[in-house]
Amino acid sequence: MAEGRSSGLRITVTVILALILAIVPLPEVLRPARPQLLLLLVIYWSLSSPRLAGLMFAWLCGLAIDVIKGPIFGQHAIAFAVVAYLTHKNQLRLRIFPIYQQTLWVFGLLAIYEFLVFWIDGIIGSPVTTWLRWLPVVTSAVLWPVLVAVLDTWNRSRR
């Protein structure tokens, strides 16, 4: 179980890092383009260690985002859980995809996530209707191959 513990530690470290990067101040121009790093991590860990990073993990990550930036509790949490569900459901397929195809899938998952958040925003009566809000989908999808490369290298060197 030493394996499990070390990847547990890795998951914790990356999640804390992602939370910090989620609220670190950026220049005004780049602010709408901030990638959803934590969501990418949830997808990554759901694929690479699905027994540690289950739906509950994803939900808690979403709740953390709700605490630091959400207008209400549960909004990002439910979106994270749905994305994690879709990832777990298709994990055997996703893992053998070549990277470009995987990126396309991740793009789709991110779009679903943004749509859920947008939808709930609309229900609670504070919709953000500018097109800029969909920008993180693109920037995050672009970031996915980089993230996979970095984390895979890290995981392999530690094993």
């Binding site: 394996e3 289950g54 739906l55 994990q91 893992r95 990277i99």
Partner: peptide, 26 residues
């Protein structure tokens, strides 16, 4: 694919089914 690691067993048969868990969290 690159994301393969040692902990690659699927989670079938561990705990309640995935859909039920999503339902609960939702």
């Amino acid at each position: 694919m690159v994301t393969l690691s040692s902990d690659s067993r699927p989670i079938i048969g561990r705990g309640p089914p995935l859909g039920a868990r999503l339902f609960f969290l939702a």
